Amino acid sequence: MRIARLDYKQHLSVSLEEAWRFFSDPRNLPKITPAWLSFSITSEVPERIYPGLIITYRIKPLLGIPMTWVTEITHLIEPRYFVDEQRFGPYSFWHHQHIFKEKEDGVEVRDIVHYALPLGPLGRLVRELTVERKLHEIFSFRRRALADIFNSKSAANS
């Protein structure tokens, strides 16, 4: 199994506490997920994540075919870091680190994702042909959505 790695950084002009409040509330996930993924949370979720939290989703990642995705929050150090790992879903391995680093003029948000697809060589081909591009689209959308959300809040507070 080949494990692929993605690493995205974004600067937000908000406090570490405000960034943490937003990202640690699972109900905000649909706001930063593109519509084409048809993403919906199907389990009850609290206002704040905690280690051991299981979240179930419905997604349509490829060809509009719906599937269930189940993740668990496995690690959490508030307000600096949390990890979600797939328990069931489209990947044979999914480990997503969310890291928040306070900066002089805001916060650096970093996502490090390690993932692998099932089906050996066929899975690698699917990753190269579609999955890699789709994940980049998702994180590009997320970057724009976060900029809009937090720039709007900054403008409203001016």
Rank of each mutant, 00 (worst) to 15 (best):
M1L: 12
M1P: 09
R2M: 03
R2V: 08
I3R: 10
I3K: 09
R5S: 14
R5E: 15
L6K: 11
K9S: 04
L12N: 06
V14W: 02
L16N: 02
W20N: 01
W20Y: 11
S24I: 07
D25T: 09
P26T: 06
R27I: 02
R27G: 04
P30K: 04
P30L: 08
K31F: 03
I32Y: 01
I32V: 12
T33A: 11
L37W: 05
S38H: 14
T42F: 15
V45A: 14
V45M: 11
V45K: 08
P46W: 04
E47G: 14
R48D: 09
I49S: 03
G52T: 07
G52C: 09
I55M: 14
T56L: 01
T56R: 15
Y57S: 08
I59S: 08
K60H: 05
K60A: 09
L63Q: 07
L63Y: 12
G64A: 12
I65G: 07
W69Q: 03
W69D: 07
I73L: 01
T74N: 13
T74S: 15
L76E: 06
E78I: 02
Y81T: 13
Y81K: 13
E85T: 02
R87G: 03
G89M: 00
Y91E: 00
Y91G: 05
Y91F: 14
Y91K: 02
S92H: 04
H95M: 08
H96D: 09
Q97N: 13
Q97Y: 05
Q97D: 14
H98I: 00
K101Y: 06
K101Q: 11
E102A: 09
K103A: 12
D105I: 02
G106Y: 03
E108W: 09
R110F: 00
D111R: 15
V113K: 13
V113I: 15
Y115D: 10
A116N: 03
P118C: 05
G120R: 05
P121W: 14
G123H: 05
G123K: 04
G123I: 07
V126T: 03
V126N: 02
R127I: 10
R127S: 10
L129Y: 02
L129R: 07
T130C: 00
V131H: 10
E132M: 01
K134C: 07
K134Y: 09
E137Q: 12
E137Y: 05
E137C: 02
I138T: 10
I138F: 09
S140L: 14
F141D: 00
R142H: 07
R143E: 04
R144K: 04
L146W: 03
D148L: 11
S152Y: 00
K153R: 13
K153S: 11
A156Y: 13
A156N: 09
N157G: 00
